[in-house]
Design a protein around this nucleic acid. Sequence first.
DNA 1: TGAAATGTTGGGGCG
DNA 2: ACGCCCCAACATTTC
Length: 482
Amino acid sequence: MTLPIAIHWFQKDLRVSDNPAFWESTHTGRAMGMFILDESASHRLLGGASRYWLYHSLRSLEQSLLALNVPLIVKRGSAAAIIPQICKKYPVAFVTTNRRFELSSIATENAIARHCDLRRHNGNLLHDPHTLRTGAGKPYQVYTPFWRSLTHAGDPPPPIAKPHAQKGDADIKNIARLESEDFDDWNLLPQKTNWASKFDSYWSKGEAAAQKKLAAFLNTAMADYHDGRNRPDLPSTSQLSPHLRWGEISPRQIWHATMAACAAQGRNHRQGGAEVFLKEICWREFSYHLLANFPDLPVKNLRPQFDDFPWQDRADFLSAWQRGQTGYPIVDAGMRQLWQTGWMHNRVRMIAASFLIKHLQIDWRRGEEWFWDCLVDADSASNAASWQWVAGSGADAAPYFRIFNPILQGEKFDPNGDYVRRFVPELVKLPKMAIHQPWTLPPMILAEHGVILGQNYPHPIVDHDFARKRALAAYQTITSKE
DNA sequence: TGAAATGTTGGGGCG
DNA sequence: ACGCCCCAACATTTC
């Protein structure tokens, strides 16, 4: 008996193992993989760093599928148009995909489902974001009860294996050859200036690399993760975020591998590094829970009173922040790490975001947009939820008056200044007692260490004490109106 | 997953 | 020896 032709539509699941939708297509059909770069108007365009990652991830996926004898069709255009067209043109029985939760993606999937047998799976989250509910039957808006209910629900489903290699089928190979474009033609990599020149040395892309990175983390950094995760100067985080973003690895794989590692190491997974690590994985889950239930999350304040916040429209300040020229070393190091590597340590993301919002009084959406463009892990759920969290405009947000002091944060979490020196080379000779506040040294001493403020490193663009008081005053203007 | 301001306490210097 | 003051250290409150 010949199985029907099936398409697995890869979206944010560029992997072959623990991929429930892909599994279905290969086990109940003759499967073709499909990836569509959808740049139609309703979809947010990928940022530059994301396009870089996508290129390499597709390369890797292509190889994995080749080994499984599954052809891959890549196309550019509107998925809502392309998939029904292909289904009409060829005898495609059904289409599988792992559902997304962005508003535009939901609309696209629904449109396709009207024309094809679209079978949607929950392949990228631990649980369905619509099933976890508070006692009152509402979505969670506070992280801790969300975490409690998630852990109370028990372990997520165990990951499923990758499919066996397929028989190899002339029909679908033919279709793929006729239909597929070559993503080399898509200009996914930088064209004019190669700003991603350093990315290659920082990142291995693809499913195998993700698994390797997870294993390395579980065997080394996880033990110290509780405190280590806050140290941008140390290699103490998993750096799995871009792999998760593209679905090269699934949270269920991470969850169960962490449990297994704890068992093998004789550790308790309910405490120490493992629990904190799983909590971070669940922050991503929480972000998706928020996005699924409050689809405006990426563009609208969850707390509407923030709609009246007196944001400053200062292109010069925004640009200084983007280029890592604020005069606050920990902020500048973070922003330059972002530019050079496509990634920023999470502690520093909070500091840099707080600085943009609170010190410079710039709308969090400007920061969200910059991160969207620069991060290899830019994800509509995590990025938006985290920016709203820092701004205080989100559901379970940090109170607005929680204003990070970039000097204290630097001294606390980069105690020797090594992180600053790595990314702000003009400060490399400064002693650690001054590296987070170079302006406190007399100009003579600074010059001896190769620093001339205003020439090779900026003066602080705002005074911390002034900025803090101004931020609190601005916050008053929206709270007093209620 | 803050920081600053304000309040409290207790040891020690000193008249 | 005693009371007073100063202030570091810690705790609590406030933004």
